[in-house]
Design a protein around this nucleic acid. Structure first.
Length: 535
RNA sequence: GCCGCCUUAGCUCAGCAGGUUAGAGCGCCAGAUUGUGGAUCUGGAGGUCCCCGGUUCGAGACCGGGAGGCGGUACCA
């Protein structure tokens, strides 16, 4: 007896670093994106869509060579030997778009854009090879008001999404200040010998939240060995240089705890202290005076602080205070191309994970000023500033916080097929419901009633329409409310009672189906709302 | 990239000094129930024990290599 021959079949599996998104998640995601989009529109940004891939040289940075055409990005060569790459962010395509249409665009040009981007990197927890960004950028002005607007937009977005003030913070810093401090301790940030050193210092400060002061000190000095024995080379600074940087990086980071922010939010955010050129919250002016000492006579540093002061005046005038925005030296945003203010939106609300340990969601978006990006194409400097939201990450955080939760019955009304000879009647019932804007379908499978009920349950149908012999004889249909039925099933243990008692169903005349279904759905929506209020 | 841990049914996992035919719970399908999603009971389907090689009379188990996953670390436009 021959063994059943195994066929070789492809394994059904999702490539690593990619995700499928289910119906209810798409709905929830879309609700979130609608809220964000509305905010971006209200701020005056215009939508733009660009294609998934671009000529590789237009994306910059990664010019594939024959050996490694896919380093970091997904690339392919088209028929006339030109390299194309999937976009790895929305900023590089924007730079191309602006350069290509420079003459006809209003300047400054303000656009928002959302869509998937791709990175060819090893995926890890929370890191995917395809993910979605939601960006707003202002191109063509050096005016720091554009940066300030993005910070306020970010704060308004998070609040519109239901995150209470005090549970998030927009942290703001300026690259120029760190450069000023480096200058003051004798590391010229623009000396080509020091480019690597500057980056190492940036990365070290960026790790402050994780490694704390001790770890960062090691990274600024000789280097650090982690628990797994891996050694990271440090910046090789002298102790007094290190202490200046540590002193800088700590300003406001440790003082500015979530608790203090909640307090500031509760006390209101009224301007307190007049400054030259405008009012500014006192919590901020303290931070600025510390920084002024640290940058001493460095011109770039002084300029950086002045820029943030201008932003602070604008924030203060609109009553965006320390409860929402924090000037914070630990914001680095590892990227090399930022040239001025940098900002990061962070969720500070702590929740408990399954083991009872505290979990922070951390950064859900960030951005900053990049004055060099369009220059590649045009040869002229086109200053720009932008902000980018990590859509999946923000959505995951919102779901943890109970926002944008899956709805109750999201499925269509199901018209059961009790008699195969009468498909046309059932089809017409579905059609009448659809004509009134109700999601509905006639069961299009081939199984019996029990299976049809299970199907309706799995589809999360609000109700089913039943018309068998009995109802037909009376000129009626039976409507069964599945949500109500589900509630009642908790109280009924006896199967006979469950089946013969026919809970949560009622009969209406054939002409009243639409009206009756509308009532059922409205009732379910009401009880959904009251449930949420209890929570 | 580096370090550590892990990989048995759709999911969570058990298994053993190396010994016939590899198990449980949940889920799935069906029946008990002539027209009712839950509950209960009964039955059923579902496995190259991650892959390749080695040791052995005999490997899911032991050894070597590889792949995949998880955690840490590095990088991150």
């Amino acid at each position: 007896m021959a063994r059943k021959q195994k066929q070789i079949r492809p394994k059904a599996r999702l490539p690593k670093g990619l995700r499928d998104i289910s119906a209810s998640e798409i709905r929830s995601l879309n609700r979130m994106l609608d809220v964000i989009r509305r905010q971006f529109e209200i701020y005056g940004f215009e939508p733009l869509e660009t294609p998934a891939f671009e000529y590789t040289d237009a994306l910059g940075k990664f010019l594939p060579d024959q050996d490694r055409p896919n380093e970091g990005v997904f690339s392919f060569e088209d028929e006339d030997n030109q390299w194309l790459s999937l976009r790895y962010d929305l900023t590089a395509p924007l730079a191309r778009y602006v350069a290509e249409h420079y003459d006809v665009l209003p300047k400054p040009f303000r656009r928002y854009q959302t869509g998937p981007v791709w990175r060819n990197e090893k995926p890890g927890p929370g890191r995917f090879r395809q993910f979605t960004q939601f960006d707003a950028d202002t191109v063509g002005t050096t005016n720091i008001a554009a940066d300030a607007e993005l910070c306020m937009l970010a704060a308004d977005c998070l609040e519109a999404l239901g995150i209470p003030r005090g549970n998030y913070v927009i942290r703001v810093n300026n690259r120029k200040i760190l450069d000023g401090i480096l200058e003051s301790i004798g590391v010229d940030p623009h000396d080509t010998d020091h480019v690597g050193k500057r980056l190492t210092i940036l990365r070290a400060i960026d790790k402050l939240d994780r490694l704390e002061i001790k770890g960062v000190e090691l990274l600024l000095g000789k280097g650090r060995k982690d628990e797994s024995g891996d050694f990271t080379k440090g910046a090789g600074l002298e102790p007094d240089q290190i202490s200046t940087i540590i002193q800088y990086s700590q300003t406001s980071y440790f003082a500015d705890t979530p608790k203090l922010r909640i307090q500031a939010a509760a006390e209101g955010e009224l301007p307190s202290e007049p400054m030259a050129g405008g009012k500014i919250f006192s919590a901020w002016s303290k931070t600025f005076s510390v920084w002024k000492k640290l940058v001493s006579s460095s011109e770039i540093g002084i300029q950086g602080i002045a820029e943030l002061e201008k932003m602070a005046v604008l924030f203060t005038a609109s009553n965006f205070g320390p409860g929402r925005i924090s000037f914070d030296a630990s914001v680095v945003r590892g990227l090399d191309y930022y040239t001025g203010p940098v900002f990061e939106a962070e969720l500070t609300h702590e929740i408990e994970d399954e083991d009872g340990g505290p979990v922070r969601f951390g950064s859900v978006g960030g951005g900053g000023r990049y004055d060099g990006l369009v220059e590649r194409f045009k040869g002229i400097e086109v200053p720009a500033t932008g902000f980018s939201i990590g859509v999946s990450r923000l959505h995951a955080a919102l779901q943890h916080l109970g926002e944008f939760e899956k709805g109750g019955s999201e499925g269509p009304v199901i018209v059961l097929v009790m008699d195969r000879e009468r498909l046309t009647d059932y089809q017409k019932m579905a059609r009448d419901l659809r004509a009134s804007g109700i999601r509905a379908e006639m069961y299009v499978g081939t199984s019996g009633m029990r299976a049809q009920m299970k199907y309706a349950d799995k589809r999360r149908a609000p109700c089913v329409i039943i018309q068998g012999e009995d109802e037909l004889a009376r000129g009626e249909v039976t409507i069964k409310d599945l949500v109500e039925g589900n509630r009642l099933s908790a109280e009924i243990t006896d199967n006979k009672e469950w089946r013969e008692g026919r809970p949560a169903q009622f009969s209406v005349g054939e002409g009243e189906i639409v009206e009756a279904v509308q009532k059922v759905i409205a009732r379910q929506a009401d009880s959904n709302v009251s449930n949420q209020e209890i929570l």
